[in-house]
């Protein structure tokens, strides 16, 4: 009767097994430091430019849109607070994560998927390496380190973008904007702004690896795995942030 649930539940179970093994391997040797650095470079440095771009423009857009609403109440001076809270708490982490999901969950899935269909994963096992240890764990560690850093950069650039609009189009001096933006931030905001990207990173890396490593069906399968990885990772990012928000909003 509930047969239609069987497949997703089995997939989820496989995903949990993979995640368990990936986490356990963090504390086990051999460690592949080279692979971690390589992945940090690919995910972090590789995404830096686009993260800067997106961060800046999200600040700009936020500022522009809010200026009109605030003008109705004559409260343009609040622009710094609004931009800073929305960016640090929500937009910075989520936009960066969705970006990295599109860029790297797909990259990871297609790379591991191609390795899977050309039997390189089996070859790895046959030649004495645990593919989870060699492929999944380094990507997990690298993403978990790099995504919070990217988020911080995106937040910072976003605040500058907001300030740029405030000072050029709203006649609010940049120092005043920056002051109010900076002072609004509380410990709670920062924690939430850093816990989120950390969790998103785990989801992005593991989902990408999971769909990559379970690819079947040749080159077509690689395409399907890549698409699934991006879609599933993005959806989970929004699910996680909606689950976390009530928790943090009520924390004072």
């Amino acid at each position: 009767m509930l047969d239609f649930l069987k497949k997703p539940i089995e997939t989820f179970q496989d995903f949990l097994f993979l995640s368990g093994r990936a986490f356990r391997n963090i504390f086990r040797s051999p460690h592949y430091a080279d692979d971690i650095l390589l992945q940090m470079d690919a995910i972090g440095v590789g995404s830096l430019f686009i993260v800067l771009l997106i961060g800046f423009f999200s600040g700009v857009v936020m500022s522009l849109q809010m200026s009109r609403a605030l003008a109705t109440y004559g409260a343009q001076g609040k622009i710094g607070e609004i931009v800073s809270i929305t960016l640090v708490r929500e937009l910075g982490p989520v936009l960066t994560a969705v970006l990295v999901a599109g860029r790297n969950a797909s990259g990871i899935a297609s790379e591991l998927g191609s390795m899977k269909v050309t039997e390189q994963i089996d070859a790895m096992r046959a030649l004495g390496t645990d593919p989870i240890q060699k492929l999944v764990t380094p990507r997990l560690i690298a993403t978990a380190i790099v995504l919070p850093l990217l988020t911080i950069i995106a937040d910072f650039i976003g605040l500058i973008g907001g300030g740029f609009i405030a000072s050029t189009m709203m006649d609010i001096p940049f120092s005043q904007y920056w002051n109010s933006a900076w002072r609004t931030l509380e410990y709670n905001d920062l924690v939430q702004g850093l816990v989120k990207p950390f969790l998103f990173a785990i989801v992005i890396a593991l989902v990408g690896c999971f769909y990559g490593i379970t690819t079947s069906g040749g080159t077509q399968g690689v395409g399907r795995a890549t698409t699934k990885a991006v879609v599933v990772a993005s959806v989970w990012i929004f699910v996680i942030t909606s689950l976390l928000d009530p928790l943090f909003v009520n924390l004072k």
Binding site: M115, Q120, D122, A123, G128
Partner: peptide
């Protein structure tokens, strides 16, 4: 392996060295 199963991110020398470097360590 069927299509050779070579690691395409590694050179030929690294591919052939792979079992020497990893199998013994794993064991």
């Amino acid at each position: 392996f069927q299509e050779g199963g070579l690691f395409d991110s590694l050179t030929v020398a690294e591919n052939v060295a792979y079992p020497l470097e990893n199998q013994r360590a794993a064991a």
